[in-house]
Amino acid sequence: MTFTGELFDIFSWLPAKSLYGLSSVCKSSKELLSDDFFIRKQFKNMQLVPDRDFFIIQKYRKGNLESHALSSKNSSAGPPPESLNFLENHGNIIASSNGLLCCRSIADYDEYPLFLFNPTTWSCLPIPILIREQLVFGDQKSVSFSCAKKKTISCCWHYLPLMSGGKQILLALHCGLRRQELQFTILQNTKGGKKGLGDNRLRIFEWGDHPNTSEFNSICLVKLLKNVFTVWVLMRTSSSYYWKRVFRMRVQAMALALSNISPRSRVDGFAVLNGSVLIFAIGRKVYSYNLKDGNNAGAGEEVCGYGCGGLVRFAPYSSTLRPCGPGAITLP
């Protein structure tokens, strides 16, 4: 087998962390890390497999974050500790996709309040923002962005769902330069959705089998009220949209391992990752629950413990070689 043949393909399915680890195999394996064709193949392949890791970020406090593997069966393919240090001091992760983190500068009056960052390769791209008011979202708002499937990063678009006045607005930014607006007046249409609004217990996430690749995926709305999770999925008919409830369960019932959790414990944060896995933090531990498995008791798993206190947020992470795009700089 050669690095111009089969090994090129085999290695392109490895997370970037493993590629750095195996770069001492021979000169050809090291050269892959700077081969444009290989880099593109690697980050595209990583879009076809589920994200393996996640960040857990303390809310309302700058610079407190950790990186963990999403399944206790996998070792972490998280970024180098230097990147975590960098993020602690410079950027608050507000969203992530295909190995890139969309961060908000920690400095209050930065020229570029937003930047993209690949914590594995140290590639960084400041995003010019035309209208500063776009940045009214804080830690508590639901924000996501995604790298488009077939396009290069220069066409990457980010959509920032902003919650205001009971309406959900998906705002798409083309690297901050071009905007498209899509409006969903979802909350009016979701039975029971309005209840719980205003205490940050209502969030929107991507939903579907291949959340990183399909442009036709849906979104889901997750409500947490009195320690009960309820999940609705946006369904499409030929002419309209409607919301379908797909899941409802008490936190304590979601896994046998959780049975020893006090009924008075509070869920400190939750998210849906990989289009179907609900993860949540309670009692300084993170649990995952596969929503596609419905009410099956085996669908839950204890993922890890964590040190951040108070309320937390989650951001998925996949270790890729994806560059941030034209104009990106490599941090020293």
């Binding site: 087998m1 750095y20 680890g21 001492s24 021979c26 000169k27 230097e82």
Partner: peptide
């Protein structure tokens, strides 16, 4: 695969990417 690195080169790479 045969390694074409010298022992020093290999050590240098391992040091550079120790986190991996």
């Amino acid at each position: 695969i045969e390694s074409d690195f010298t022992a020093e080169e290999e050590e240098q790479i391992k040091k550079e990417y120790a986190w991996a």
